[in-house]
């Protein structure tokens, strides 16, 4: 049992557990699954700046901060107690492509050559961490949700606007990963 837990989990185990979050939050207290709202709540708590979009009763949404706090704790537990030292498994095709950009560190689930405080001073590191993060925050709020709120919660509730959003996420991701990112990585 423990042996299976410390190995990487297959997609169907992860998919079932994530899918069950939807009814768990509904049944525990009528909450709909959605993570990116927390970015808005952080703005509302820390920098509302008189902007209407950030003036609402964020205290009603405090359950979502607890949810994110749980994600912190769960990731901590998994990373420190439930992992092997084996390098991250990556498809050979991707490995050979990334090697062409000098990316060969598979010790963590992010390439350390791109994600570190030193990498911030490189052009590609800055684009990926700072511009990439900005697009995640701007895009999710503009779209009204992210992978959890639209792709999982919205599609589970058969909402066609969430299907539009999910298709847009995928189109944007395909364009970036296949066309623009190779150029950024070569900078």
């Amino acid at each position: 049992m423990m042996e299976q837990i410390i190995q990487p989990w297959p997609w169907y185990v992860a998919g079932i557990l994530i899918g069950l979050i939807v009814p768990a939050l509904l049944i525990l207290g009528n909450k709909t699954f959605g993570i990116s709202s927390n970015l808005r709540h952080i703005c509302a708590v820390c920098f509302p700046a008189g902007i209407k979009f950030f003036k609402y009763d964020w205290k009603k949404e405090i359950w979502n901060f607890f949810f994110v706090g749980g994600i912190f704790a769960g990731a901590f537990i998994a990373n420190y107690f439930l992992m092997t030292d084996a390098p991250i498994a990556v498809s050979p095709a991707l490995q050979s492509e990334l090697a062409g950009y000098g990316l060969t560190d598979y010790s963590y689930m992010l390439p350390k050559e791109l994600f570190s405080f030193e990498a911030l001073l490189t052009v590609r590191g800055f684009i990926i961490m700072v511009i990439g993060g900005f697009l995640v925050g701007f895009g999710t709020r503009y779209a009204g949700g992210c992978t959890s709120g639209h792709a999982i919660m919205g599609l589970s509730n058969l909402q066609w606007p969430s299907l539009v959003a999910t298709i847009s996420f995928m189109v944007g991701g395909f364009l970036m990963a296949n066309i623009i990112l190779p150029w950024i990585l070569s900078l």
Binding site: I35, S36, N38, L39, I71, L110, I127, I128, M129, I131, G132, G133, F134, L135, V136, G137, F138, G139, T140, R141, Y142, A143, G144, C146, T147, S148, H150, P161, S162, V164, A165, T166, I167, S168, F169, M170, V171, G172, G173, F174, L175, M176, A177, I180, L181, I184
Partner: peptide, 20 residues
């Protein structure tokens, strides 16, 4: 949902992460 969705898609592929 279209414009924001595309922009989030760009960010998702860059950072390899959605908000969670």
């Amino acid at each position: 949902q279209i414009y924001g969705g595309l922009l989030f898609g760009f960010g998702w592929a860059l950072t390899g992460a959605c908000p969670g």
